[in-house]
């Protein structure tokens, strides 16, 4: 076939270029722009190179919240993924009860983030909150506002309550997509319930679980609103996660340069971890 040279065809990709430019490239570039300058006012901005990056990476506040952030995401995945699978396995497969379960599961996902924070803020209070009141009356010394372990526990519990549904719904759809004939074959092969889970259900859930883990990692790694409303990052800095540290820096102290450098590093961490996870999984698949 003869190749026709038609440079006007380039105009056809223009809408996409414009769209991507406005949605991603331009906002990102302004951040890059801030991160390499020291800006005093509109007329006084100086190029500082990688200085902010060096600063930020040595900043103990950032290092602390980064560690906290990883611990938080680790626990979120550790609890929500197995729990989501378990919930999906226990759900009814069809009929009105299945629909009811789906609706009940979807409800937490529909609640605005700061409402979730407020709900748990009240729920955990020892004087008027059902949860805090019950724990206290059971003789536990529970106070999320003053005890860091209680605060962590409450923030994690809130996230599990809010987001396990997502994993469960993903797994539920994955389970429904397994053809009956696999279960029939397994029953003919005398597979035990555990073997069916281990060798049929879990492998077939792999693709939805990859999505689930990625979504839950990214979301939990960027968590801001709920702990901010619930604990305000406290007590002390014990539940101050990365995005809250960043917001304090950018808006509270108006350190635009370091905050911009911080944002980019933050973004790169999320990207890097997700990419590593995804490539590892795909490589494991290809291996013979």
């Amino acid at each position: 076939m003869k190749k026709v040279v038609n440079n006007k065809a380039w105009f056809l990709v223009l809408p996409v270029v414009v769209l991507v430019a406005f949605s991603a490239i331009i906002p990102l570039m302004t951040v890059v722009n801030y991160s390499v300058q020291d800006i005093f006012d509109v007329n006084n901005a100086y190029f500082v190179g990688a200085e902010w990056y060096r600063d930020i990476l040595q900043n103990p506040r950032l290092q602390d919240s980064l560690v906290r952030q990883f611990i938080f995401s680790f626990f979120v995945l550790l609890i929500e993924i197995p729990l989501g699978i378990a919930v999906a396995l226990m759900m009814p497969t069809k009929g009105a009860r299945a629909s009811l379960c789906l609706i009940l599961l979807a409800i937490p996902l529909l609640i605005p983030l700061n409402v979730v924070g407020t709900i748990w803020q009240v729920f955990g209070r020892t004087d008027i909150g059902l949860f805090g009141w019950t724990l206290t009356h059971l003789g536990m010394d529970y106070n999320y506002a003053s005890n860091p372990i209680d605060a962590w526990f409450t923030v994690l519990l809130m996230d599990v309550w809010h987001w396990t549904s997502l994993v469960a719904l993903l797994c539920y759809s994955g389970l429904r997509a397994i053809p009956d004939v696999y279960y029939q074959a397994a029953s003919i092969d005398r597979a035990s319930g555990w073997a069916i889970f281990r060798y049929i259900q879990l492998p077939k859930l792999q693709s939805v679980l990859v999505i689930g883990v990625l979504l839950r990692f990214m979301d939990s790694f960027m968590i801001y609103t709920e702990p901010f409303v619930l604990t305000g990052g406290g007590p002390g800095n014990s539940t101050t996660f990365l995005s809250q540290t960043l917001t304090q820096m950018a808006i509270g102290q108006f350190d635009v340069g370091p905050a911009a450098a911080f944002s980019l590093i933050y973004f790169l961490i999320v990207l890097l971890v997700s990419w590593l996870f995804f490539t590892t999984i795909s490589h494991m698949d290809k291996a013979k």
């Binding site: 004939v181 029939q184 074959a185």
Partner: peptide
């Protein structure tokens, strides 16, 4: 029983 579509344990 052998089914219409091959059933194998993927993993």
């Amino acid at each position: 029983q052998v089914f219409q579509f091959p059933v194998i344990y993927d993993s």
